[in-house]
């Protein structure tokens, strides 16, 4: 399953990346090669095999519903690239709630 340049461009939007030439061309080639290698898995018969998303077969890790101290606002916002006294600031969003 080779990947096309158009697909790479589409995926880059989905991943919120911006690939410009010659990165786009290079990425198409490299992803193509990796996907070609990955196609190796096609030869494995996985009919009736349960997927394994996690190495642990442990379940049920809970915490109790107790309030813990939150971060001081100044500390929470300290790493923000743009902020005011109270909030993070980002370029305008639409459909604000």
């Amino acid at each position: 399953m080779a990947i096309t340049r158009d697909e790479v461009e589409k995926v880059s939007l989905l991943a919120r990346l911006l690939l410009k030439e010659p990165e786009l061309e290079q990425m198409t080639g490299q992803l193509g090669a990796v996907l070609e290698y990955i196609a190796l898995l096609d030869e494995v018969d996985t009919a009736n095999v349960e997927p394994m998303a996690h190495p642990l077969d442990v379940v049920d890790a809970f915490r109790d519903d107790e309030v813990q101290p939150s971060l001081d606002r100044e500390r929470a916002l300290a790493n923000a690239p743009n902020r005011d006294d109270e909030c993070y600031r980002v370029p305008a969003v639409l459909g604000v709630t």
């Binding site: 109270e86 909030c87 993070y88 600031r89 980002v90 370029p91 305008a92 969003v93 604000v96 709630t97």
Partner: peptide, 19 residues
């Protein structure tokens, strides 16, 4: 999710985020 607030009144081109 958190809340996005747009500051149209002061004419800023950005939104404020409260998490």
């Amino acid at each position: 999710a958190g809340k996005s607030m747009h500051d149209e009144a002061v004419g800023r081109a950005d939104s404020r985020i409260d998490l």
